[in-house]
């Protein structure tokens, strides 16, 4: 609980004594590039395979000949949009981006780089952390969209290449009874997850104390805490918005 209070105060500190807009613009741009380039390959890989595997497994479960094959791609679509792309990817995002944010800030803390910024009269938390959070909120939804598309493409490739279903069936299923609100829901979720992961990981890194060992601990605990926060908020958002 004490940790949570400190986290809230930390978030508040991000918005005081800010640098010029131009400085932030550049920093956000840099972070966006780091996050985007750094995670795109992993996202494409994981989501393509997830789509492919979901297709095979759904097909394996739908053995009843009365159920049309296009139901498979409909199920894959719903799974992808509602859970695989925003939530499962968030866990991967926490492992990839969250841990590196915490590790980077933790290293800056223990090597006094954060103190060096403070001595120059810079608000180090807002200078270092705010751009990371903004960049995350901008980039993560884009990554989720990419992941969603890749997952459906992965399903298509496996579905048609292994002869589970025809291309026409797959496309038909994907478009069947489509509820566009689910897309909005996925994007809302991804905004929330992006904020949670980047702010929690930054918080863990920013308040590292000690040495290299503690930096390692901070980045592990950043991943654990962000994942828990993501799963909890996933549950509440589903209750709230569905």
């Amino acid at each position: 609980m004490k940790g949570f209070g400190k986290y809230v105060i930390f978030l508040g500190s991000l918005f005081v004594r800010r640098e010029t807009f131009k400085t932030y613009y550049q920093l956000v741009l840099e972070e966006c590039i780091i996050i985007g380039i750094g995670s795109i390959l992993l996202f494409v890989l994981v989501s393509t395979f997830m789509g492919a595997v979901s297709t095979i497994q759904t097909a394996a479960n739908l053995v009843n000949p009365l159920i049309p094959r296009y139901i498979i791609s409909q199920v894959v679509r719903e799974m992808t949009i509602l859970e695989l792309a925003p939530t499962v990817m968030a866990i991967i995002y926490a492992g990839k981006v969250g841990s590196s944010m915490a590790g980077g800030l933790g290293t800056m803390r223990i090597t006094e780089q954060i103190d060096a910024l403070e001595v120059m009269g810079i608000n180090s938390s807002s200078y270092l952390v705010l751009p990371k959070i903004i960049a995350s909120i901008l980039m993560y939804p884009l990554l989720v969209i990419v992941a969603g598309v890749c997952s459906l493409v992965g399903g298509y490739l496996v579905g048609t290449l292994t002869g589970i279903m025809t291309a026409e069936d797959y496309i038909y299923g994907i478009r069947l009874a489509f509820n566009p609100y689910f897309i909005s829901f996925a994007l809302i979720k991804s905004l929330v997850f992006a904020f949670l992961i980047s702010s929690i990981s930054s918080y863990k890194g920013y308040y590292t104390q000690g040495g290299a060992l503690e930096v390692g601990i901070a980045s592990t605990s950043a991943v654990t805490t962000s994942v828990i926060a993501v799963l909890l908020s996933d549950y509440f958002l589903a209750q709230l918005l569905l």
């Binding site: 800056m108 006094e112 780089q113 103190d115 060096a116």
Partner: peptide, 18 residues
């Protein structure tokens, strides 16, 4: 911050931005 602008500091571990 005005006074801080007049300060320079060398840290124990140099604290260069990596």
């Amino acid at each position: 911050s005005e006074i801080r602008r007049e300060m320079g500091m060398l840290f124990q571990g140099s604290a260069l931005f990596d």
